[in-house]
Design a protein around this nucleic acid. Structure first.
Length: 208
DNA sequence: CAAACGATCGGCT
DNA sequence: GCCGATCGTTTGC
């Protein structure tokens, strides 16, 4: 079943980042469906988290969606090329989000490979970790785009959503460490707000 | 209006 | 392990 609004509007974004591991991210539009188990996440928590785009309550045209009620997508472009997918959480005005950094394909693998060849100019022919590991890679595989930022994950006609497959992820299968690429965030850089499923091969290497 | 800067990726050494 | 690509957003003058 799809995760309900109440899953996203909880106030502890770090807990939500943990809870998203093992859940299934599904995209379905233009008659094409792809899905993958979420294997790696990072929590971002404005206003005091310097690594967050909405740090110090900074609201711009780009980050405005982060301030809305949880249960939407915040998708932005990084390094001019990569579209990074985040799940907005918390109440209206909170500016919390979880970056999805890795998925393990479970549906539409062929389509994922086609999209990666087209958008990422990779020559991959089979499913392997590089297909959907890394925040910029999984959005290509799932067909997600920054133009979809602000879309609801709850609406009946949503083009993408997250499902609960029903099986619990054992606590011992979850590891945590520093977030990646946020060295300039001062003391916030040390926060262990990155989580991954140790039972999967679909997460990035740095383990601390 | 100009300039610097990324929550990265993939190829090559 | 290192390095260049690439461009929308933000910030500074």
């Amino acid at each position: 079943m799809r995760l309900p609004l109440e899953f996203y509007t909880r106030t502890d974004v770090v807990q939500i980042a943990r809870d998203l591991l093992g859940k299934v991210l599904v995209t379905e539009f233009d008659g094409q469906r792809t899905a993958g188990i979420i294997t790696e996440t990072e929590a971002y928590r404005a206003p005091e988290d310097r690594a967050c785009h909405a740090y110090d309550k900074r609201s711009t045209a780009r980050t405005e969606v982060m301030f809305q009620e949880g249960g939407r997508a915040y998708i932005y472009i990084c390094y001019g090329i990569h579209h990074l997918f985040n799940v907005v959480t918390g109440h209206d005005g909170m500016a919390h989000a979880v970056l999805i950094r890795g998925i393990e394909p479970v549906e539409g693998q062929k389509l994922m490979i086609e999209r990666r060849q087209l958008l990422g100019k990779v020559k991959m022919q089979t499913v392997k970790p590089a297909l959907t590991t890394g925040p910029g890679s999984l959005t290509q595989a799932l067909g997600l785009h920054s133009s979809m930022s602000g879309q609801s994950l709850i609406a009946a006609d949503a083009p993408f959503w997250i499902e609960n497959p029903g099986k619990e992820v054992p606590e011992q299968d979850i590891a945590s460490g520093k977030r990646i690429g946020v060295e300039s965030a001062g003391d916030c850089a040390a926060r262990p707000w990155r989580f991954w499923l140790t039972t999967s091969k679909f997460f990035k290497k740095p383990l601390l």
